[in-house]
Simulated assay, not measured.
Amino acid sequence: MPIVLTSLPQVSAGLAHIFTTLLSSCYVGSIYASKEARLQFSSNNLRIQAGHIRNKERDERWRDDPDVIRARLVAVSLATLTCCMIIFCLFWYLVGGEAKFISLAIRETLTHLGLRFNDVSIYPYLVTPLLFLGPLYALFLSESLPFQRSWSFNKDVFPIFFSVKGLRNYIIAPITEEVVFRACILTVYHLSHATRNKMIFLSPLSFGAAHLHHAWDTYNRYGRSSAALKRAVVSTLFQFTYTSIFGFYCSYLFIRTSSVFPPIVAHIFCNIMGVPQPGFEIRQSPNRKWPIVFAYLAGIVAFTFTLGPWTHMEGSLYWK
C-alpha cells in the first residue's frame, strides 16, 4: 500500500538560513573549486584610459574565455544536482530516513522543487513578454523580430543556442540559477513556514549576493585603478539591485504556480532581451517616439493587471 504524506515536520528558521547559505555557497563556490574554472589575472602594473577594458595578457583567464565557460558550465551543473540531492536528503530525513521512504522522498522533492509538469497553463509564460511590450515594439520597428528583414539565423539564433557563451547566458545559467535560488531555497523556507512576503522579498537577496563576486572580474579587466574600483562597485551594486528585483519576480512566479518552469522561461527571455533602453530605441526611431513611449506604458499597465490573475494556479502548494 503506498504511503500518503499529509504533513511534514517543520524546519526551524535558523536551519533554513543555514541551508540557504549552504546551497548558495555550493553554487557560487563550484566555479572556484577547480583551476580550469577559476579566473586568473596578471599582476603587472597597468596604465589604461579610464573607462576602457584593457587588453588580455598571455596566461590570463577571463570570464568569457571559452575554456573557462566550459569548466564553469560543468561546475554549476554538478552544483545544481548536488543542491537537489541536499533537498532530497532533507526530505528523506523528514519522512523517516528509512529505505522504504526513498520513493516518498523523491516524490516530495520533485513536487516541492516544481520539477513536475503539472497543470500550469500558458498564461504565466506570457506575463513577462507583456512587460517587454515596449522593447518588442522597438524591435518590430527596426525589423529585428524573428523572420523580419533584419533578423537572421546566424546573427540572432546561432549565438544563443550554438555558442558556448550563449549556452551559458541563455540556457545553463537561467536553468541552474532558478533551480537552486528559487526552487531549492524557497523549498527550505517553505518548510520553515516562512511567510509569503519573506519568501518573495528576502530569499532572492541570496541570488543578488551570488553575483557580487563579479566585482573582482570588473576591477581587474578595467585596470585595477581607483577608476576601475569605482566602476566595479557601481556596476556590482546595480547588478545586485537588478538581480534582487528580478529575484522577487521569479520567486512570485514560483510560489504562485508551484512550478520552476515559468521562472526559468522568464529568466531566459529577460536574458535574451537585456535591460530595456527606451532612450536608445527612441533615438533609433525618432519619428516613433510617442508610440514607443505608449508601448512601454501599455506593457507596464498590462503586466500590472495580468500578474495576479494569469499566474493563479488552483491547488498551488505554496500559495494557499
Results as ranks from 00 to 15, higher is better:
residue 8 L to K: 06
residue 67 D to V: 11
residue 238 F to T: 13
residue 32 Y to S: 12
residue 218 T to D: 12
residue 45 N to W: 01
residue 142 S to C: 03
residue 124 P to W: 00
residue 87 I to F: 00
residue 123 Y to M: 13
residue 198 K to L: 09
residue 3 I to L: 13
residue 209 A to F: 15
residue 315 G to S: 11
residue 109 T to N: 12
residue 192 S to F: 01
residue 33 A to I: 08
residue 299 G to I: 04
residue 94 L to E: 10
residue 203 S to M: 13
residue 56 K to H: 11
residue 150 S to C: 10
residue 307 L to N: 10
residue 180 V to W: 00
residue 77 S to T: 15
residue 36 E to N: 14
residue 40 Q to Y: 11
residue 191 L to M: 08
residue 62 W to G: 08
residue 270 C to D: 05
residue 265 V to C: 07
residue 234 V to H: 12
residue 33 A to R: 06
residue 154 N to M: 12
residue 65 D to K: 00
residue 150 S to M: 07
residue 6 T to A: 13
residue 275 V to S: 07
residue 129 P to L: 03
residue 276 P to G: 03
residue 13 A to L: 13
residue 101 F to T: 14
residue 270 C to Y: 00
residue 282 I to L: 08
residue 62 W to N: 05
residue 289 K to E: 15
residue 212 L to Q: 05
residue 35 K to L: 09
residue 156 D to E: 05
residue 194 A to S: 15
residue 31 I to L: 10
residue 92 W to A: 07
residue 55 N to A: 14
residue 84 C to H: 02
residue 207 F to Y: 11
residue 20 T to P: 06
residue 239 Q to I: 12
residue 139 L to P: 03
residue 102 I to W: 09
residue 127 V to S: 07
residue 135 P to C: 00
residue 9 P to I: 05
residue 27 Y to E: 11
residue 18 I to A: 15
residue 276 P to C: 02
residue 240 F to Y: 15
residue 112 H to K: 03
residue 83 C to V: 01
residue 38 R to N: 13
residue 320 K to Y: 10
residue 154 N to R: 09
residue 316 S to Y: 11
residue 77 S to R: 01
residue 189 Y to R: 04
residue 232 A to W: 06
residue 232 A to R: 06
residue 72 R to H: 02
residue 289 K to N: 09
residue 290 W to R: 05
